[in-house]
Computed example of a mutant assay.
Amino acid sequence: MQRSRIAVAGASGLIGGALARSLAADGHEVVRLVRREPRGADEVRWDPERGSVDAAGLEGCDAVVNLAGAGIGDRRWTEERKALIRSSRVEGTRTLAEAVAALSRPPRVFVNGSAIGWYGETGDRAVDERAPHGRGFLPELCVEWEAAAGPAREAGVRTVCVRTGLVVSRRGGAWGRLFPLFSAGLGGRLGDGRQYWSYISLHDEVAAIRHLVDRDDLSGAFNLTAPQPLTNREITAAMGRVLHRPTLFSVPAPVLRAALGELAGDVLGSARVLPTRLLESGFVFAFPDIEGAIRAA
């Protein structure tokens, strides 16, 4: 990638922050979208809830990457929480996509976040980008989320939707909560442990996004998951091996449902998702196996 000016929404989050640091380390100019008054030329004000963004600050950007949104697994899914999750993604995406479409000098590419929640419950069945969306809150959210990028695509801007799996990192996300438990010897399977988890190391997540930004011939949806999804039981065993801790504990499904409510369905659900298009594009994973991903974290 030649030195570029790249705008990142969600740069304070796990993935967005890692992406911004990676780009800056390689000499790229990173413009962060912020909800407060900008403190320098490298920040642009936006208010996704109100549908406003300082579009002038996006002029001259080679790429716009939107990874903003309220945390999906942070707390119980009350109706109010689900409304916030939806609006922060759908309305935020629409705001940016419309701003990008209206620029006098639009970027080469608009990369928008999405999730493997698109597929819903897949059981033991492996799915890739050719599979239809599932049913339920997360699949319906992802459909709306990706559709909200339409204005950019319709304006002729190359548009990519990254359907991210469970990111292996100590810094946040689901794994950010798992590491302390396993390190303390309190880790174990969730439910019966047979559900598939489609994971990706934070390193490969960032590298994949940069790969998709750089390749002018790639557009549409891409699954950002490691090549071999594993069951929760297999991942639990790998965590124990790498951290040298026992994994004797388990959390029964009824307890998870009582504690997490509707969110438990996502934890106990099975998503066996393959990164077919990413592999076909020539992307090479640095940490394709779970033990490597855990060690990298």
Rank of each mutant, 00 (worst) to 15 (best):
E80F: 08
A83G: 04
L84C: 06
S87M: 11
V90N: 01
V90Q: 01
R94Y: 12
R94N: 10
E98L: 13
A99P: 08
V100I: 15
V100M: 00
A101S: 09
L103K: 06
S104A: 15
R105N: 13
P106V: 01
P106A: 07
P106F: 02
P107D: 09
P107L: 02
P107Q: 06
N112M: 10
N112I: 05
G113A: 15
S114H: 10
S114T: 08
A115P: 01
I116C: 01
I116Y: 04
G117Q: 01
G117T: 03
G117A: 05
W118G: 00
W118H: 13
Y119I: 06
G120M: 09
E121Q: 15
G123P: 09
G123S: 04
A126L: 13
V127E: 02
V127I: 12
D128F: 02
D128N: 09
E129T: 12
E129I: 06
R130Y: 01
R130P: 00
R130E: 12
P132M: 03
H133D: 04
H133S: 14
G136T: 09
F137K: 10
L138R: 10
P139C: 05
P139T: 07
E140R: 14
E144T: 04
W145K: 11
E146L: 08
E146N: 04
A148F: 01
A149V: 03
G150E: 14
G150H: 12
A152P: 04
R153S: 07
E154A: 14
E154S: 15
A155C: 07
V157F: 00
T159C: 07
T159E: 04
C161G: 06
R163G: 02
T164G: 05
G165H: 07
L166Q: 02
S169D: 12
R171E: 15
G172Q: 03
G172N: 08
G173Q: 05
W175P: 03
W175Q: 08
W175E: 02
G176P: 10
R177N: 12
L178W: 13
L178Q: 14
F179C: 11
P180L: 11
S183T: 14
L186M: 15
G187Y: 09
G187E: 10
R189L: 11
L190V: 13
L190T: 04
L190F: 14
G191T: 07
G193W: 10
Q195H: 12
Y196G: 07
Y196I: 03
W197C: 05
W197K: 00
S198Y: 07
S198C: 09
Y199T: 05
D204H: 09
